[in-house]
Design a protein around this nucleic acid. Structure first.
Lengths: 202, 202
DNA sequence: ACCTGAACACCGTTCAAGT
DNA sequence: ACCTGAACACCGTTCAAGT
């Protein structure tokens, strides 16, 4: 046989990396694996399934966490690793946001985060709330960070600084920090704040 | 004249409400305002601009906050109102996530949140970090909440419960809470945790 | 200034037909 | 079981031509 499902996901991920989510289309994908577009439907149900498989492939890159180490550190590492994996692929966060959390690797991620909060002593409800909040934050952050506008950042910054100062005094004053602030620092700040809050409400 | 830009956004919002983001296309939109698709380009630059206008219209529904009241309460109200506005329109969060934060109403939101944190005594950097984290959380949460999978929830729940218990013990055990947990409670929990953490690091 | 039909270069997906 | 060409019902956008 010429290829299996693994090969298909591999090709889809390559396509995503080179062209972004817009370029992840059936015809180019088919060409990449040496068949015509209609034949793809012999291997997958529809594009939604394809996207879910790509999402899972991205999640597969996130190294598992170590259940023997302190939960908080491990959860933080996981968040950073997930962000890194999402940033590694153009529109990675959009792929995650557009697909349901099926797929074994993605479920493993969820499993481990749930486990970490449970080990920390949270109730079932708290565990669910904590994991859900954390996931929303990470995916939301990367979504904002990457696709929070298609234009280049310096254009956006100039745009913000040019705003009427009487109507938008804060934005004008903070335009520099707003655009130039290192995303790493912002991500870490929110992550720390969220986990601090979660920990205290455990 | 038959219509202005306001009328166009109004029609686009109606289309979004009735058909979702998928149905928000140029030809149906044109028909709704009584012209042909190419004529739309006499009024807007491209679809991205249209989406940004729709995003701004959604943000316009969020009542302004009161700078004379305690910052924390006001920020919380704003978060709840933004979530409500996003939930009011199908794929509202996706529209926000897909567009840059231009548009006067959306900027007003940002302006007010920045102002609230600044009043709370945060430094410029902290203010930016806090506002950014909060925005990521809210949009990320609603994105997850609405589009976190297209299938119906009970199917997903059954799917999770049917997972191998030895490989995914947490997910299987928590499938009930995971799917049935009231989104309101989860949202409030994460929001409180995040703001608690932010407040303490001010 | 604004509208139009025709067209271009795409989409995802179905289907009858082949091997 | 898997592939194919042709086709359907769409996309966003451009452009020459009209008023």
């Amino acid at each position: 046989m010429r290829f299996d499902k693994t090969r298909l996901v591999e090709a889809a991920l390559e396509l995503l990396d080179q062209e972004g989510i817009e370029g992840l289309a059936m015809r180019p994908l088919a060409e990449r694996v040496g068949i015509r577009a209609p034949s793809l439907y012999n291997h997958i149900r529809d594009k939604a399934e394809l996207l879910a498989m790509v999402a899972d492939a991205i999640c597969a890159e996130v190294d598992p966490l170590d259940p023997d180490r302190p939960w908080r550190r491990e959860v933080e590492r996981m968040a950073h690793r997930l962000r890194a994996a999402l940033l590694r692929h153009p529109d990675g966060a959009r792929v995650l946001a557009a697909t349901p959390p099926t797929g074994p690797h993605r479920l493993r991620l969820m499993e481990q985060v749930l486990g970490a909060f449970r080990r920390a002593g949270f109730s079932r409800e708290r565990t669910v709330d904590a994991a859900s909040s954390l996931n929303s934050y990470v995916v939301g952050f990367v979504l904002d960070e990457t696709q929070g506008g298609e234009g280049d950042p310096s254009t956006l910054k100039a745009q913000l600084m040019a705003l009427p100062k009487d109507e938008f005094p804060m934005i004008v004053a903070l335009a520099g920090p707003l655009i130039d602030a290192p995303a790493d620092r912002r991500f870490r700040f929110g992550l720390t704040a969220l986990l601090d809050g979660i920990e205290q409400r455990g």
